[in-house]
Amino acid sequence: MIPPGAAGRDVASPTLPSHVEEVRARVSNWGRWGDDDQRGCANLLDAAAARRGSVSVRTGERFSLALDLGPDGPQVGQPAHRTNPTLEMLIVNQRDRHAPGVWVSSDDAVHMSTCAGTHIDTLAHVAYDGLLWNGFPASSISTETGATVCGAETLSPIVTRGIVVDLPRLRGVAGLDEIDPGYAVGGADLDEALDAAGLTPEPGDVLLVRTGDIRHLHAGDRTRYALGDGYRFPGPSLGSVEWIHGHDIAGVFTDTYAYEAFPPPSPDWSDTLCVHMLHIRDMGLLQGQSWDLEALSAACAEAGRSDVLLVAAPEPIVGATSAPVAPVAVL
């Protein structure tokens, strides 16, 4: 996610910029759930959170928040190793000659990046200063075994109240990029959205942050969606991190490719991915990208509500640092 103009800048320094360090010191959850904890804020997804989510069900209308997994997905080669799913047919209308009956079957296989489409990042996804979430060493990830701690198999199924934060609709625009392609969502924005919805966040809630950016993907402009407008993306900013921590939010999921606002706060980009770093490595927050919130947000606006039951079970791929997921919101 580094634009050409950033080439040549010093990206090797291990020192966290001071303004990010100040926030880290206030939001770190290390040790909160024990020194060996690999779940982070998923510990907030308790029975009370599930019951609160169930209370949000009124009509029973269901919305899939997942993108289709196929060759027209959002991957365009940045980063270069991320690929859209490719399907390989292993057998087509064949039958097992050792089995009785007249049936035939087809089998297939898929190759894809674990974060190719709608996904959740694990707590092994981002590190700095040689450490992952809760102080686990970044060296616990290897090319042979993947993540030996905090892999996708440690992610919890999500059953809780989801709060739809629809800032474009609140602003009267189709997408936040109509205001500013790099719109930085801060704590004041979240307060405004929650006040407008008449909701008070509670521990274990998750935020479904709609920026409207995914409409570019739906319109067929994959490059605009994946690379932004000159590498500018709307999304949660450093100014939202303490709000999320202070309200004990369990997860934040967005409809963007980059997840967080770009460009980062510092002109020299020394704080690139600061929201990723603080959310995942320091807070243990569940986060994910490319969640399709368009149909859900329209239904919520029509119904005059922002609370839903969210059910999402990430694929428990052992050692993976991200996990595909097909979330469902129920009104």
Rank of each mutant, 00 (worst) to 15 (best):
G162T: 02
D248A: 15
H276P: 09
V102K: 06
P157S: 09
V55F: 13
H111W: 10
Q94I: 01
V185L: 15
W291Y: 03
W291A: 03
T256K: 07
G319V: 12
I214G: 01
I91D: 06
C150D: 09
V164C: 14
F136L: 06
H98K: 12
I158G: 00
M89N: 10
P327K: 06
R210V: 14
A42K: 00
S106R: 07
E302H: 05
M112E: 12
G73I: 02
C115M: 04
P168K: 10
A152R: 00
S156G: 08
P234N: 06
S322Y: 05
R26N: 10
A6F: 12
D166T: 02
W243H: 02
V11H: 08
P3C: 11
V173L: 09
T83I: 15
A47M: 11
N93F: 05
G77T: 12
A312G: 04
T211H: 10
G175F: 05
A138H: 15
M1C: 03
G212A: 07
R232K: 13
D248Y: 01
D96Y: 08
A124F: 08
M1I: 10
E144R: 15
R169D: 15
V173N: 07
P181L: 13
V252T: 13
T256E: 03
S13L: 07
L170P: 11
V92K: 08
P74H: 03
V311M: 14
V185N: 03
V325I: 12
C41Q: 15
E260Q: 14
P327S: 08
G175C: 14
L217G: 00
L69T: 04
R305D: 11
D248Q: 11
